[in-house]
């Protein structure tokens, strides 16, 4: 693990919110991406049986080159083992326990080299989360989880009355101020939402995403971009961008990597990347394409 840095997506949320269903959907739709899933425990079938190729005490091998391991109480040890796999996985997905605080998991694995956080996804049961947040026992755990979220996957919306959905959304934006909200039924969302979009669409696994629920666009700013300003605008401007990732050319010709998840953003120098362009993902109809497009001009010198 010298220069390769593995992206890590942390999935949190209380028991019964639908984390396991989400994971299985991700694996089902991995589409060539090699995921290494770390679960707290091998519960009663964390992975749908039809996806399992082989299974031993410590690892489940999954169709398409994915694996699932339980990390018990040694996340760092499990991550270090993943880093030694040849070839290494494309993504690490950590399914945290129902009472874990996902931000704490991120700060722990951030201590070791070779991994970077690529999103904190908190799954909530749309029907029950507001009541659960008032529970004497688990209420503060749920609100702490939400406050760490970069994406809130609002699950089980099939059980929520349409008029309650609005109330739920505004409550969630208060509880999870840094997060983009993604509605879901049966944990079914485009994998890009959870795993991130591929920065260079021309060389990536898949074309920019587009389906009934999501849409994406590619932003191609001119050179001389203020990368930090652009990243910040994409994340916090209220344009409906759930995730964005891509490379731009800065003022003195340096290449910058921009990444946003929810309302958190990052811009760092990334020498050696020629192709520029930022893939932006949003909910269909809620991604404000024109305004996002305008940023390409506004953020240039």
């Amino acid at each position: 693990m010298t220069d390769a840095v593995l992206p890590v997506i942390t999935i949190g949320g209380y028991l019964g919110s639908g984390k396991t269903t989400l994971l299985n959907n991700l694996l089902r739709r991995a589409d060539g991406r090699r995921l290494a899933v770390l679960v707290n425990e091998f519960g009663e079938l964390p992975i749908d049986e039809d996806l399992i190729v082989a299974e031993d005490e410590n690892m489940i091998s999954i169709a398409g080159g994915c694996i699932c391991c339980s990390f018990g109480n040694d996340l760092i040890g499990a991550l270090n083992e993943l880093a030694m796999l040849d070839p290494p996985p494309d993504y690490v997905v950590i399914e945290s326990s129902g009472v874990a605080i996902p931000g704490a998991i991120v700060s722990t694995f951030s201590l070791i080299d070779g991994f970077r956080s690529d999103g904190i996804v908190v799954v909530v049961d749309g029907e029950t989360v507001q009541a659960a947040a008032k529970d004497d026992y688990i209420g503060d755990t749920i609100t702490r989880q939400l406050s760490d979220a970069e994406i809130v996957l609002v699950n089980k919306l099939d059980l929520v009355e349409p008029e309650q959905e609005k109330d739920l959304a505004s409550w969630l934006s208060e509880m999870a101020p840094d997060a983009a909200q993604v509605p879901a039924r049966f944990g079914d969302v485009a994998p890009e939402t959870i795993l991130g979009v591929v920065a260079e669409p021309s060389t990536g696994h898949t074309a920019p995403h587009s389906d009934a629920q999501f849409e994406s666009m590619i932003l191609r700013p001119n050179d001389d971009v203020d990368a930090s300003l652009l990243a910040q605008d994409l994340a916090t401007g209220g344009y409906g961008v759930i995730r964005a990732k891509g490379y731009v050319a800065g003022a003195e010709g340096q290449t910058w990597l921009i990444q946003t998840v929810g309302r958190r953003w990052q811009a760092e120098q990334a020498p050696g990347h020629g192709v520029t362009g930022i893939v932006c993902l949003g909910l269909r109809g809620l991604l404000l394409r024109d305004q996002v497009g305008k940023l390409a001009i506004d953020c240039c010198g």
Partner: peptide, 22 residues
């Protein structure tokens, strides 16, 4: 995990190591 009024020095409540449902 403390019931009200929590820690004497005002520290936030502790952590569940096992969820009530589990």
């Amino acid at each position: 995990r403390m019931r009200w009024p929590g820690y004497h020095n005002g520290a936030p409540n502790g952590l569940w190591y096992t969820a009530p449902d589990q």
